[in-house]
Simulated scan of single mutants.
Amino acid sequence: MTANPPDPANPPFPLTGEPLALDLLNTRPAGTGDLIAGPEGLAAWLAVQEGRLAPVAKPGPAEVAAVHAVREAAGAALTAARRGERPPAGALRALNEASAGAPAHRELAWTPEAGLTAAPHRTGTPARRLAAELADAAAELLTDPRVRDVRQCEGADCVLLFLPAHPRRRWCVASTCGNRARVARYYARHKP
């Protein structure tokens, strides 16, 4: 049985807008499977991340494999970093290799509207560029002093991660997991 490809007009990503590395890790929510298992899912996720990553014309299997490798390494490293432990050497090696696969340099450009700009530019295949950007996002999160504040949603069966702006935040999305928890508490109190 094949899964239906995601509808780009209505992406199935339950939580976005967190640090980019967390958005990547949240592409595998519980009970839903891998939301970026194929090129269509990756394209939909990249569309949601527009402006945060360099555009990728049409992701294919190479981009999917590169993103999956970064996601696996970032997940393993984050699990350890959240506990204040040393991340697995293999995870760090994979992230470093992905980042080095398409190093960034600043490219100067002149436009009459903006004047002189210096934008990051990467060389290499689209898969290597995308993996390098995501590995750099993971490195940014892993070295952020707030990495130990990253939480997993307290919703039943929810595995999504978030970096709370408020210390009392408990759910990935209050209107989803939070409402489910409130409804469950209500029914538990009012059981006949």
Rank of each mutant, 00 (worst) to 15 (best):
R86A: 11
A98H: 08
D7Y: 10
C172Q: 06
G101W: 04
P5T: 14
P29Y: 12
R86G: 02
A37E: 12
R28N: 09
L108I: 10
T176N: 03
L15R: 12
E133F: 09
T176Q: 09
P14C: 09
A181T: 15
A94E: 11
G101T: 08
L15P: 07
R93F: 07
R170T: 10
P39H: 01
W110S: 01
A62S: 13
E97D: 15
L141A: 05
L78D: 01
L53R: 08
R28C: 12
T143G: 05
R83N: 03
R106V: 09
T27C: 14
L53I: 09
R185H: 10
E50N: 12
G38P: 04
V56S: 08
L92M: 15
M1N: 05
T123R: 08
A69C: 03
N96E: 13
R93D: 13
W171S: 03
D34S: 15
R180F: 01
A188W: 05
H68P: 01
V173W: 02
V70Y: 00
W45N: 03
P61C: 00
P12Q: 05
P145A: 01
L142V: 09
P112E: 15
A181S: 07
W45S: 00
N4M: 07
E133M: 10
A181V: 11
P8F: 09
D136F: 05
T125P: 07
V147T: 13
W45I: 01
H68F: 02
G51P: 08
A118K: 00
T143K: 00
P8D: 06
P126N: 14
N26K: 10
L53N: 07
A69G: 06
P12Y: 06
R106Q: 15
R148T: 14
T111H: 04
R128L: 10
P39V: 02
T2D: 11
A135S: 04
P5D: 10
Y186V: 05
P5A: 14
V67H: 00
Y187E: 14
P59D: 12
E50V: 06
A181I: 03
P39L: 00
L116H: 02
A156R: 13
L24T: 14
P8K: 13
L95T: 12
V173P: 00
A132L: 07
R83G: 04
N96W: 10
T125Q: 14
E113Y: 03
R52W: 12
P12C: 10
C158W: 11
P29A: 14
G124V: 12
A127T: 12
R151N: 04
A80L: 07
A89H: 11
P87N: 00
E40W: 02
A66Q: 11
E18G: 02
T2F: 06
T176P: 01
R71C: 01
A80W: 06
T16H: 13
A3D: 11
D144R: 04
T2N: 06
G124I: 12
E72P: 00
V150G: 05
A77I: 05
A69E: 14
N96H: 15
T111Y: 03
P12S: 03
L95Y: 09
V183S: 01
A104H: 08
G90M: 08
T79D: 10
A21Q: 06
G115P: 01
G90I: 07
A65S: 13
L53T: 09
L108S: 09
A131W: 11
A109P: 00
G84I: 06
E107N: 11
A98L: 07
R82T: 09
G155V: 08
R122K: 06
E50C: 04
D157F: 09
V64G: 04
